[in-house]
């Protein structure tokens, strides 16, 4: 079964970000496919590479990055949500002369077309907000 997962919640603010992560991991453990992860609205904070947490806390952003790389997942951050929340890749950082890259390179900044494409090509779309 091919899943796409849409995340609207920011880590450390809402449990839904962690629920989405645990769900995604479980989908993969069960041998299903992830067609795409799509981070939208406050969900774009899941792709921040600048978070620091206490030693006894989970770094959810880092866990997402690891999971995405380990499984070669297609992960998209909605570009309009991202740039106004300060989540930028190298290209946006240089375009807006921001002097820092805040998004993990494992996710790609792209438009809502990628979400629509995911709904067209997935067996199941599930939302976490």
């Amino acid at each position: 079964m091919k899943f796409s997962i849409v995340v609207y919640a920011a880590p450390h603010s809402a449990e839904a970000a962690a629920t989405a992560f645990n769900f995604t991991r479980s989908v993969l453990e069960q041998g299903h496919d992830i067609y795409r992860l799509f981070f939208f609205g406050d969900g774009v904070h899941n792709a921040s590479r600048l978070s620091v947490v206490a030693q006894d806390e989970n770094n959810l952003q880092q866990q997402w990055d690891q999971l995405i790389r380990d499984h070669g997942l297609d992960s998209v951050i909605c570009v309009s949500s991202a740039v106004n929340r300060g989540i930028v890749d190298a290209q946006e950082a240089s375009r807006h002369e921001l002097g820092a890259v805040s998004a993990y390179a494992s996710s790609e900044l792209a438009g809502l077309g990628q979400l629509i494409d995911a709904t067209m090509h997935s067996d199941r779309v599930i939302n976490f907000g």
């Binding site: 079964m1 769900f23 989908v27 299903h32 199941r124 599930i126 939302n127 907000g129």
Partner: peptide, 15 residues
């Protein structure tokens, strides 16, 4: 949870 998502044909999230 994943199993239920396969068993039912679509998922509507209320949040």
């Amino acid at each position: 949870f994943v199993g239920l998502c396969c068993e039912y044909e679509k998922i509507v999230s209320w949040f």
